[in-house]
Design a binder for these strands. Structure first.
Length: 295
DNA sequence: AGACGGACCTGGACGC
DNA sequence: TGCGTCCAGGTCCGTC
C-alpha cells in the first residue's frame, strides 16, 4: 500500500516528534510481522537516541546513536502513530491501556521538548517488517534497489539502460524496485498516463535502437517525477488504511487521473477516451486506451 | 536472466 | 443478519 509518497509523508510526520528522542523501552506484542523480529530487537533499541529518520525507496530508516539503524517497511497496511493522540496532549498517555489487536510494536520515547511519547506500529495484514543494521552493515533489503526517482541518478537514460531487451510490459518493469525504487501500483498507473504510454507496452520497445532514451522515456521519467512530487505535496493518498502519522488523511487520491477510475472519462484535455481496467500479473492496471499508446 | 503465479494476512465491500 | 466471494497500496520465492 504505502508507496514512496506515503512513506515520505510518514517520515515527515514523525520527524519532529522522534528526532532527538531517547528510546526508553520497546514492547513487542508478537514474535513476528511478515518475518520474525531480529534477535534481541527490543534490547538493542532500548537506551538509544533517534538521531534522524530517513527514507530509501519505501523503507523508513531510523538512524540511532551508536551507529545502529532501525529499518522498517510498512507492507500494505502498516502505520506509525502515537498512542492516545499524544501529539496534542502528551500528558495523557496511559501505559496500562491494552494494545489494539493489530498494534504490534510500542516504543516508549522521551523527547527533549515533548516529554513522554508512545510510538505505535500497527499493521493488520502484517506484510510489514523490521530489521536492525549495524554501522556499515549492508542490508539485503536495500542492496538491489534502483535509483531514487527524485534524485539525479534517475533519468530517461537510467530507464533506457534497464528497459533495454526487456520484453515484459512496462507496467511490470516500473514495479520492479531494481529499475526504479519506490513506485507501486497506483503511481505506476498515474505516471504511464502522464507519459501517454499503455501499461501493456513492452518495456524494451520504448528504448531507441541506438540504446538511448528518446522522447517517450523522457516523458515517462518526467511523469514519474511529477506525480511523486505532487503526491508528496498533497500528503500522499488515503485509500482504506493509510493515515499520516497524526491520523490525518492524504489528499492525492482526489487527483488520480486513472487509478480506480474505470469507466470515467479520461481527464487528458480534448481526449474522448474512457478509463479501462486490465489485469496484469494479477494486479489491476488503469489506463486510457485513446491517449495512451503502445509500441 | 526474465516473467509469472502463488503465498503471506486481514478486513471491507458486495451479492445472495 | 449472515455467509460466501472477491479485492486491496508489497515483496519474496519457486518454477518455467
Amino acid at each position: 500500500m504505502p508507496e514512496l509518497p506515503e512513506v515520505e509523508t510518514v517520515r515527515r510526520g514523525l520527524a519532529p516528534h522522534v528526532e532527538g528522542a531517547e528510546i526508553l523501552s520497546v514492547a513487542l506484542n508478537r514474535a513476528d510481522l511478515r518475518f520474525p523480529f531480529p534477535p534481541d530487537f527490543a534490547a538493542r533499541l532500548a537506551g538509544r537516541r533517534i538521531e534522524r529518520i530517513e527514507r530509501r525507496a519505501k523503507y523508513l530508516l531510523f538512524r540511532l546513536s551508536g551507529g545502529l539503524t532501525w529499518l522498517g517497511h510498512l507492507g500494505m497496511t502498516g502505520s506509525f502513530g502515537f498512542a492516545d493522540r499524544l501529539l496534542a496532549e502528551p500528558t495523557r498517555y496511559r501505559p496500562s491501556a491494552p494494545a489494539g489487536r493489530h498494534e504490534h510494536v510500542v516504543v516508549q520515547l522521551r523527547h527533549p521538548r515533548e516529554g513522554r511519547l508512545a510510538l505505535v506500529y500497527a499493521d493488520p495484514r502484517r506484510f510489514g517488517f523490521m530489521d536492525l543494521l549495524e554501522e556499515d552493515e549492508k542490508s539485503p533489503y536495500l542492496a538491489g534497489l534502483g535509483p531514487e526517482p527524485l534524485s539525479n541518478a534517475f533519468s530517461a537514460e537510467s530507464l533506457a539502460e534497464r528497459f533495454a531487451g526487456r520484453r515484459g510490459p512496462v507496467k511490470a518493469a516500473l514495479l520492479d524496485q531494481r529499475v526504479v525504487a519506490g513506485l507501486g501500483n497506483i503511481y505506476v498507473c498515474e505516471a504511464l498516463h502522464r507519459a501517454h504510454i499503455r501499461p501493456d507496452c513492452a518495456a524494451g520497445a520504448l528504448v531507441l535502437k541506438s540504446g538511448r532514451a528518446g522522447a517517450r522515456l523522457d516523458r515517462l521519467a518526467d511523469g514519474v517525477r511529477t506525480v511523486l512530487v505532487e503526491a508528496i505535496e498533497a500528503g500522499g493518498s488515503t485509500l482504506r488504511d493509510f493515515r499520516q502519522a497524526d491520523g490525518g488523511e492524504g489528499y492525492f487520491q482526489h487527483r488520480f487521473a486513472v487509478y480506480d477510475r474505470e469507466g470515467e472519462p479520461c481527464p487528458t484535455p480534448l481526449c474522448t477516451g474512457t478509463v479501462r481496467r486490465i489485469v496484469q500479473s494479477g494486479r489491476s492496471s488503469f489506463f486510457c486506451p485513446v491517449c495512451q499508446k503502445g509500441p
